[in-house]
C-alpha cells in the first residue's frame, strides 16, 4: 500500500465511529480487514475450519452488537481477537448445549478450487531448494503439533508468535499477566521442539 493509499484508508477508530453513527458499510470494511485473522486464530485454536468460520461469524455479530462497549475505538483489532479467542476456547462446551450447527459449506472453496491450490503449491515446492523444502515440511507438521498443545499454551503461542499480537495485548486477550503469557509461550515452544524433533 502506498503512502497516499494508506493516508486515504480510514483507521479502525474512524470505522468504529462511523459504525456507531449507523453506517453499516463501515463495519463491512472492518470485517474485510479482520476476517482472515479472526478465522486463522480460531482455526488454530479449534483445528477445524468449519467450526472456525462459525466462531468468526459469531464474533463479528457480537462485536457489532457490543461496539458501544468498546472504550478505545482504536483497539478494535485486539478487542475482536479477544472475542474470537474466548468463543473458540469455549466453543466445544457451548456447542454441547447450543442450537443446531450452522453450515458454512458455501464459504469453503469447492474440491476443484482446492485441488488447483494444491497443484500450485506442489509445483512451487518442486522448484525449491532442499532447505526450503524442509521448512515447508516443517510448516505442514506444525499444524498438527499445535493441536497437541494445552489450550492456554496454544492460544498464547498462536496469538503471539503466529499472529504477532504484542505481548501486552495477548495478556489482555487471555486475561493473564504478561509474565504468564511469556511462560506459556516458553512452554509451548519447548513442547513443539519435542514434537517436531524429527523435522528439525
Amino acid at each position: 500500500m502506498t503512502a497516499t493509499a494508506a493516508a486515504l484508508t480510514p483507521s479502525d477508530e474512524e470505522l468504529v465511529r462511523r459504525t456507531r453513527a449507523g453506517r453499516l458499510s463501515a463495519f463491512d470494511e472492518l470485517v474485510e480487514r479482520y476476517q482472515r485473522r479472526a478465522t486463522s486464530v480460531s482455526y488454530r485454536l479449534l483445528g477445524n475450519l468449519h467450526d472456525a468460520l462459525e466462531v468468526c461469524q459469531e464474533a463479528f455479530v457480537r462485536a457489532y452488537r457490543g461496539l458501544d462497549g468498546l472504550d478505545d475505538a482504536g483497539r478494535f483489532g485486539p478487542w475482536l481477537l479477544r472475542i474470537v479467542t474466548n468463543l473458540s476456547l469455549n466453543y466445544r462446551r457451548d456447542r454441547a448445549v447450543g442450537g443446531p450447527k450452522l453450515s458454512f459449506e458455501d464459504c469453503i472453496l469447492d474440491g476443484d478450487a482446492r485441488r488447483e491450490e494444491r497443484v500450485a503449491l506442489a509445483a512451487h515446492s518442486s522448484e525449491m531448494p532442499g532447505a526450503e523444502l524442509a521448512a515447508d515440511e516443517l510448516a505442514e507438521r506444525l499444524e498438527s503439533a499445535l493441536a497437541r498443545l494445552p489450550q492456554q499454551q496454544r492460544a498464547a503461542l498462536v496469538l503471539f508468535s503466529i499472529e504477532q499480537v504484542p505481548q501486552k495485548d495477548v495478556a489482555e486477550i487471555l486475561g493473564l499477566s504478561i509474565e504468564a503469557v511469556k511462560w506459556h509461550v516458553f512452554q509451548a515452544r519447548k513442547k513443539l521442539k519435542e514434537l517436531l524433533a524429527d523435522y528439525l
Binding site: L24, Q35, R36, L49, L53, C56, D106, L142, I162, E163
Partner: peptide
C-alpha cells in the same frame, strides 16, 4: 527454525476459504 515456521504460518492462513462469501454472509447476519 520453529519460530520461523510459526511466523510463516501467519502468511499462509487457513486454506480453502471464500473470503468474499464469508464477508457477505457476516454482513447479512448483521
Amino acid at each position: 527454525l520453529i519460530e520461523q515456521a510459526l511466523h510463516a504460518a501467519r502468511a499462509k492462513g487457513p486454506a480453502g476459504v471464500d473470503w468474499r462469501r464469508l464477508r457477505s454472509r457476516i454482513m447479512s447476519q448483521l
